[in-house]
Each structure stands twice: as C-alpha cells, then as structure tokens.
Write a protein that binds this DNA or RNA. Structure first.
Length: 238
DNA sequence: GCGACAG
DNA sequence: ATCTTGTCGC
C-alpha cells in the first residue's frame, strides 16, 4: 500500500516517475478542508548553480494578515534527478523534504514555485508536495507548462481560465496591472477558487506572491553563502 | 515525425 | 534554474 506518509523513494527513472505520478494523483483532494483558517502562508523554492549538483532549498512562513516573515528553514541537498518538463517535483522535492523537516513553525497553506494541476498528468510539484507534506498547497508559476489561458483584462485581479484538453486546469491571474499574469492551480487539499484568492492576497504589490519572493531571496542568499547560515551553524554540535 | 516544454 | 551589464521606463 502507498501512503503520502510513507517515505518516498526518490531513486527513480523518468519512466518510473511518470508511473508514480499517475498513481499518486488518485490521492489528491481538490477541495480545501471545511472551515480552513489560514493564519500562516508558506513559500518554497530552490536555487542551483551552474557547475554544481547541489540544490539549495528554503521555505519561508509569513503571517497571512501582514505578510511579514515569522519563520524559515534551509537545506542543501545533492540533486539526483535532472530537470525534465513535467517531472520537476522529482528534482526539487528531495531538497524541500529536508527543509520541511527543519521547519518548526508550519504554515496552513504552502505555495510552490511551479504548477499544481496545470500539468500534463494533473500532478505538478504543488500536488506532489502537498501530498508529501500533507497540507493544503498551491501552484503559482511564472509560465505555462500546458494549457491555453483565455483573454484577461489589464486590471489587477483579472482572471482567465487555463484550459487543457477541454478542461479547466488552472487560472491566469493578473496580480499587477499591465504586467504578465501568474498561473495558478490547486495542489492538494485545495481548489482553484481558494488558490486564486490566496495568491491575490499574497501579491498586494508585485507580480509574484510575497511567499515566492521571500523564498526566492532566501535560497539565493543561502546558495551564495555556500549553504551556510547562522541558524544551521547553531544546529551543528561541536 | 515535429514542436513545446514549470524550474 | 543559471550565466551576466547596462538600460529603458514608471
């Protein structure tokens, strides 16, 4: 039997990864928990270097009301899977799994840098990550992997459904007037409407949500510091 | 077979 | 994603 709580084996071939996606997607719940209260929003990202096989991952937790950071965690982990369009989670989640283990303050919703259901097999990194960490998750990408967005107005808050093979798989969302939209889709324990609502709340000023912006800065600083940080030093005995 | 292709 | 400087525009 397979369970999201079962430690996942990351030592897979691309073919095996595709098969696993098809099995895991059956466990997705595309509806938020009844009465979901979001007081903390999380963001996750990883950074890489050219001639280096290390993934520098990080997560940030923001107060959902003020969007101010309240917690963070990082981890540097060797990358064992190449970047293959449609299989991003197999490259990034092993890193984020180590980060998640170090994150003591957990968010109510986690925003991923990539797709949720707007994916060839409806199982983008936000779906896989939400299932793995067992929490509501959202995919918010800067570009499309699959699907065609409808035309959307220029004003902030404008939305247009992303259709793929006759189905709505996500939403193009204009978070800032006159700027290209971001592409939102539910991950796990989430629906499209709630996902769009929170991405807009998290993006009061810039194109990308504050969760993503904070996470992006965190992992870039972490990488440039060579995977060293005061916080990690403290955790190291000796 | 050809083109597209999250990060 | 990363490699990289300046530059156009609000």
């Amino acid at each position: 039997m397979e369970s999201p709580r079962t430690p996942q084996d990351w030592n897979l071939t691309p073919t095996e990864a595709v098969a696993l996606q098809k099995r895991l997607r059956e466990q997705l719940i595309l509806q938020p928990p009844p009465g979901l209260k979001v007081t903390r929003l999380g963001g996750a990202d990883i950074s890489t270097e050219k001639g280096n096989d290390t993934g520098y991952g990080g997560m940030v937790v923001l107060d959902a009301a003020t969007l101010q950071p309240v917690a963070r965690a990082m981890a540097a982990v060797p990358l064992s899977f190449p970047y293959v369009p449609g299989l991003l989670s197999f490259r990034e989640l092993p890193v984020l799994e180590a980060v998640w283990a170090r994150l003591t303050v957990r968010p109510d919703v986690l925003v991923f840098d990539g797709q949720g259901t707007a994916h060839p097999r409806r199982f983008g990194i936000a779906c896989h990550g939400g299932l793995l960490f067992d929490l509501p998750s959202i995919g918010c990408a800067k570009s499309l992997l699959v699907g065609t967005p409808g035309k959307l107005a220029e004003r902030r808050g404008a939305t247009a459904p992303i259709t793929h093979k006759g189905e709505v798989v996500g939403m193009a969302v204009r978070t800032r007037q006159g700027v290209s939209p971001v592409y939102v889709s539910p991950g796990h324990r989430m629906d499209l409407e709630t996902a769009v609502e929170w991405v807009l709340k998290a993006s009061p000023r810039y194109r990308e949500p504050e969760t993503t912006r904070h996470a992006h800065r965190l992992v870039n600083d972490f990488r440039r510091a060579g995977g060293e940080s005061a916080e990690l030093e403290e955790e190291r005995p000796g």
